[in-house]
Design a protein around this nucleic acid. Structure first.
Lengths: 226, 226
DNA sequence: TGCAGCATTTAAAGTTAATGTAAAGTATAT
DNA sequence: ATATACTTTACATTAACTTTAAATGCTGCA
């Protein structure tokens, strides 16, 4: 019940701005945490594992650039997307910003709608489901398309063809609910006719192999992958 | 009329301001129309399809915020860029303004040259990143048709099939009162027969999930969504 | 105003329908 | 022929839905 659009860490020394931005982000379904300075940002990041960190450039103590550099040097955080918040007219500083490893620049004053779509665009480019070659990764689940194998927490399990195709269909759009009809069409094709319970049985087998939580049911509608 | 830079609707109850702004905008080649209040603004908008609506916050009758909300709820207008005109010192109102869906704030007194460049900046980003088709937004409520969930102020809640269908029906025409018969026909189909109280119970569940205010009752008639 | 009468709200109990599951049956491939 | 995958069956379980009934709240009228 608390699936979110993505985790975001806001870092700014001004409470107003934190409040304003976090309000707007939460409204869109993001899981937001705030930090007042670079140090705090690092601490929270290690725990919270944000998908995106939005850093104010000017902060007392460790400034945005330095914080960004540290993030890039931290083994667990270096993949995190980082965006800077800058006051108007700080354009020249962008050189240093990108140099320190920023992914984007957001100029103050912030306009909510633009801001939100910018954030969404940034998160979209996250290798949320990183796909290197034949493998797709979802958190602790790895699906290997070539070997017809899934690896859950390092435990490798073979999937049969139908199981695999069904899982691929569901994972092709995480969180989308696939109706039974869509599943039939996608996995069996429209002409093949099999009993209603067939899908359930395959779902059960998949759940057995990748964990119960991964596939959810909406009664009367269908299934979805998280 | 030669091709214009863009269509702009000005909404203000003070004729002076309308005249002043429209003069300056027309001089720059914009196609400008004016409205005296929120109601008039809605009427003209539907016909005129402005690219940008500039709303005074304080107006008799429907104020700017309410007008903005209505614009955002109107299927044909929700992509329109909206900017507020505010008197000096109304800063705190920005929260309500952005909440109601505004894209920008313009402070009075207006300086023509600044104003024009602001307007141009707003129009420049007209190809607004429109929300993906699977989600419908009503203020702080997001309905995701694919995921069978609603997001209210960032809190995601699953809906069951019936709840979801009922909510979709009501939201398909906000403010229209659906009679109980219409609801039966729309959600259950004309052949299914269930008791009178069934609808109420589902309405209650939905209210529980998206907030009491969202669905109103008209005694003896039915329900509507706002 | 106060009360009667009716409609809706609400919680909880009851029912139904859909899915979960194990195991047996059938097809397919090696 | 045998193993493996797939489907079907039949029963158990669960969540969704419906009904019930009591409480609340409106509306109009005396």
């Amino acid at each position: 019940m608390d699936k979110t659009e993505g985790r975001i860490l806001l870092v700014d020394d001004e409470a107003d701005i934190l409040e304003f931005l976090s309000y707007n982000l939460r409204k869109e379904g993001f899981d937001v945490k705030c930090a007042r300075n670079g140090l705090e940002a690092m601490d929270i990041s290690v725990q919270f594992r944000p998908d995106l960190i939005i850093l104010d450039v000017m902060m007392p103590g460790m400034d945005g650039y330095e914080a960004c550099r540290q993030i890039r040097n931290h083994p667990d955080l270096k993949e995190t997307v980082v965006a800077f918040l800058t006051a108007r007219g700080e354009d020249m500083s962008q050189v240093e910003g990108f140099d320190s490893g920023a992914d984007d620049y957001i100029r103050k004053p912030v306009r909510p709608r633009v801001f939100i779509s910018r954030v969404k665009a940034l998160l979209r480019r996250i290798p949320q489901t990183s796909e290197d070659g034949s493998r797709i990764t979802f958190g602790d689940l790895i699906i290997d398309k070539e070997k017809y194998v899934v690896i859950k927490r390092g435990i490798e399990t073979e999937l049969s063809k139908k199981e695999f195709e069904l899982l691929l269909l569901l994972t092709s759009r995480p969180n989308k609910v696939f109706t039974r009809d869509e599943i039939f069409a996608g996995v069996w094709g429209n002409d093949v006719i099999v009993g209603e319970r067939t899908i359930d049985v395959h779902i059960r087998k998949i759940r057995e192999k990748i964990g119960m939580e991964s596939i959810k049911t909406i009664k009367g509608v269908g299934y979805y992958f998280t």
